[in-house]
Design a protein around this nucleic acid. Structure first.
Lengths: 198, 198
DNA sequence: CCTCGATGAGACATGAATGTCTCACATGGG
DNA sequence: CCCATGTGAGACATTCATGTCTCATCGAGG
């Protein structure tokens, strides 16, 4: 494996390092490169060979987060069926990655004027498109803009990830809490008429 | 004013510095002590004379945020009237301070295991109490825990403050967006029957 | 006019994180 | 068996924010 062995080895290690870093930075967003290396079970030198610096690492994590979001969007088939159910599927798909997303969400606020990864714009557009579709179909109210609903979804995901990490809410309730609050709000339905859904 | 003049002078300056720092850190949470000083129109030396260090400054901002939250809770009279209207008043009262709150909210995640200011616990309890009251009175649904609703409110406030700062939503819609989403959710009411409230 | 106190400017040391480098090891392939 | 490659350990310089210090200046009050 002298001519291509390094490719696959680097690839799997890179994946593992990325996962470890994501898990660590989710809990401690200011973790040192040294801590990240330890968490991945490698030395700082090796970490630095794979990622030129902390910036490169964060960018790689950003790319990972974007890929996971797009995978979630695809898996949730947000174009099919009622928008309500699509939102439910989307949150369920994103749930496992909410921690990483929360980290990237807060990290993005530091990029200031610098160029934002275009991937986020694509994801924003697809999520906003889902809300727009729900509005067009009459499922969703139209007095809340899709842009705000998208931001609110991110905020709820981050809050829920944080609350779960802090032990303030049970992990099993994650999807239910977000979806129910986002879709139905906190106000109790007024009509005592029969309701099919839970 | 040789014997007590410094007290009032320090006081007003301290207030002004605190406001400036809040405004700056709301936009750039990693601002330097030097930038904070410049933003307040004073030198770094003077800034350091009033606040022993960055930590002390953040603590002072935290105290300010807590005081503003408690003032908002008092002004909103969260114990009176329908819980729905109390939530509306509370968000409206907090709106001007949402930026600072968002900063402190993200900053709190760095305190890790260290002692959290007890003030937040008091505020959490009062907010959660409001949601609990709404559940008891039958206004709010009971399948979402007050703790989660509290966290969700914080998340929505932070998201909205961020979205407004980014220009993605209009500042004038701030309260309406949060309250409507939190109370009613995104799903359109099903019954086409007459609705008295907006 | 003189003096005291606060301020601004800036030098200086410190600590932390980072980026770069060298060297020794050990593991796997030829 | 020997060599090459990746790795770990650690030294080292650099950068940056911070904290501390001194000194000159300015303004108000005596």
């Amino acid at each position: 494996m002298s001519h291509m062995g390094y490719r696959c080895l680097m690839a799997v290690d890179r994946e593992h390092v990325l996962r470890s870093a994501a898990a660590l930075l989710t809990r401690k967003s200011t973790a040192t490169m040294d801590e990240v290396a330890k968490a991945a079970g490698i030395s700082r030198a090796t970490l630095h060979r794979q990622f030129a610096g902390r910036d490169a690492l964060v960018r790689a994590l950003e790319a990972l987060g974007i890929a996971e979001c797009e995978a979630a969007l695809a898996a949730a088939r947000t174009d099919e069926g009622p928008a309500t159910e699509a939102v439910r599927r989307l949150v369920a798909e994103i749930e496992p990655h909410a921690g990483l997303l929360a980290f990237l969400y807060s990290e993005n606020q530091l990029f200031e004027g610098e160029e934002q990864n275009e991937g986020w714009a694509r994801i924003d557009e697809r999520v906003a498109g889902l809300f727009r579709r729900g509005q067009s179909s009459g499922e969703f109210r139209i007095d809340l803009t899709p842009a705000w609903l998208t931001e609110a979804l991110y905020g709820l995901l981050a809050s829920a990830a944080w609350a779960v990490a802090e032990g303030r809410v049970a992990p099993k309730d994650f999807t239910h809490m977000i979806v129910e609050l986002l879709l139905g709000g906190v106000r109790r339905p007024e009509e005592p008429a029969a309701r099919k859904e839970s």
